[in-house]
Design a protein around this nucleic acid. Structure first.
Lengths: 171, 171
DNA sequence: GTACCACGGTTCGTTGAATGAACTAAGGTG
DNA sequence: CACCTTAGTTCATTCAACGAACCGTGGTAC
């Protein structure tokens, strides 16, 4: 489709990336997946996205190799969406963008990120000075920051108001 | 406006950031500004974006404090758009996203980034190991990578096929 | 066994935004 | 005086987002 998602003629890896994760809602779906959201209904509850759009985005992310759809229960049959390694690598740009928003668009931080093995707070490039490593997503813990207001009360929002290891499924 | 740009109810700095730079074309405009593109006509030539959309995006970016519109010539009156400090801070997420695209969606790198003061190649978080600093945008030089094919031949594309310091205006 | 519910979607009419071509306006240049 | 450049605006058409309603599969309660 030449309209809506493609940036034809842009020979640039940023444009390529945006063709995959640049559509409305897509990066928020990825963020939720990083927080451990896996089920259609949970994405829906947390995002207030039209169902048709969510279906389309999930399929597109699976197609692109960022999410994997897999059956986690047979009776009744239920599927879940989990990040692939390629999807987990989006951690860095997502964090950088969120931190930019935090520094420039909000008063105080909504969420803080920590290197789970050592408890050190992470900066915008996820580099843990204490350990001297770039923290992979699996080793990151989120905790609510001072700026987080409890506006929403869907399952997912409530679960994420407690400290939580990234990728751990929502209860 | 509840439609199209807002992510109402998402109490999250990523959503806030996406409200500002998440619309179609917006991040490509910012990328071009980082490369040194400043004039309406140059953005237009490089991006193949409809004129009305470009006008809207440029105004929105000025409104958001990411670009500054300023007169660089009086007869005839001409304006240019340059990144503000807040806009320059988008460098990190833009780089991280582009590098993700490069690693996961393309064969070989389109463009390589170097720490201009010392000539060291930069990684996805713009950390210069030789100098031990996070390189600011002003100190970065782009050079074409092996994967860059000379498909486009507009003014801007041609100019960017030579090594070029970030933010330096297109000739 | 039958009514009801949870989950994960699809369908569809309405609204808003992107597209691209044409037009405008200010001000030089030959 | 005709024409060119730059930076837009206007407008009809096309496409995608929205949100409400509907659908299908397979439990669970009575």
């Amino acid at each position: 489709m030449a309209l809506g998602k493609n940036y034809d003629g842009q020979d640039c890896s940023l444009a390529k990336a945006l063709e995959v994760i640049g559509e409305r809602w897509t990066l928020l779906v990825v963020r939720d997946a990083m927080y451990g959201v896996r089920r259609y209904g949970d994405f829906l509850a947390h995002l207030d996205v039209p169902r048709a759009v969510l279906s389309q985005r999930l399929s597109a992310l699976v197609e692109a190799g960022i999410l994997e759809k897999r059956r986690y229960q047979d009776a009744p049959p239920r599927e879940e969406y989990v990040l692939t390694p390629m999807g987990r690598e989006l951690w860095l740009p997502v964090l950088a963008l969120a931190q930019w928003g935090e520094r420039n668009l909000t008063r105080s931080p909504r969420r803080l990120f920590f290197h789970q093995p050592c408890g050190t707070r992470l900066d915008q490039v996820a580099f843990c000075a204490a350990c001297g490593v770039q923290a992979p997503l699996e080793d990151v813990e989120v905790r609510p920051g001072p700026g987080l207001e409890g506006a929403r009360d869907d399952r997912v929002s409530v679960a994420l108001r407690a400290p939580h290891r990234m990728l751990d499924p929502i209860p």
